[in-house]
Amino acid sequence: MAVAFKSTSSPQRRPSRPVHLPSTQNKVVSFDQARKKRVTTRVTNSAPLVEPLSPPPTPTVVKVLPKPKPQPLWLSSMIALQRASSVVTSLIIGSTLTVYGLTVYGESSWTQEYPRLEQLRATEQQLQA
């Protein structure tokens, strides 16, 4: 399958002039000869060009890639195992961080409240005495 893209119009493009074909016996002239004559006529009749005209861009051909071969069963199962283990690993890491955070928060709140507990015990002993 081949695809050709039309080039965008550029400011350097000019409308085409009529082609003057040389007379021959069978009146068949190759395209290259007609182009050479037209270009040489244009160059000799006009002012010298500052920049030579570039040839028109060639159409881009896009090739169709072949369909990929199906993966073997062992490779498909290994990929599924990797995805499943990635999910399990993420869940384990998330739960570990949650437990660690709760442990640190519990210890810090215990450290802050322990002196108040000792004060309440002392007050209770005084009231009993």
Rank of each mutant, 00 (worst) to 15 (best):
A2Q: 05
A2I: 08
A2F: 12
V3D: 07
A4S: 14
S7K: 14
S7C: 14
T8S: 11
S9D: 10
P11G: 01
P11A: 02
P11Y: 00
P11F: 00
R13T: 04
R14W: 06
R14H: 06
S16A: 15
S16V: 13
S16I: 14
R17L: 15
R17T: 10
P18H: 09
P18I: 09
P18E: 11
P22C: 01
P22R: 07
T24A: 02
Q25F: 14
Q25K: 14
V28D: 06
V29N: 13
V29S: 03
D32E: 15
Q33A: 13
Q33P: 00
Q33K: 12
R35Q: 11
K36L: 13
R38D: 05
R38S: 12
R38L: 11
V39N: 08
V39L: 15
V39G: 04
T41E: 11
R42V: 00
V43R: 03
N45K: 01
S46R: 08
S46M: 04
E51N: 12
E51F: 03
P52F: 00
P52V: 01
S54T: 09
P55M: 04
P55K: 06
P56N: 06
T58L: 14
P59T: 03
V61L: 10
V61Y: 02
K63C: 02
V64G: 05
V64D: 07
L65E: 15
K67Q: 12
P68G: 05
K69G: 01
K69S: 10
P70F: 05
Q71F: 03
Q71T: 10
Q71P: 01
P72Y: 01
L73D: 11
L73Q: 11
S76D: 11
S77G: 00
S77V: 04
M78V: 09
M78Y: 09
M78L: 15
M78G: 01
A80E: 15
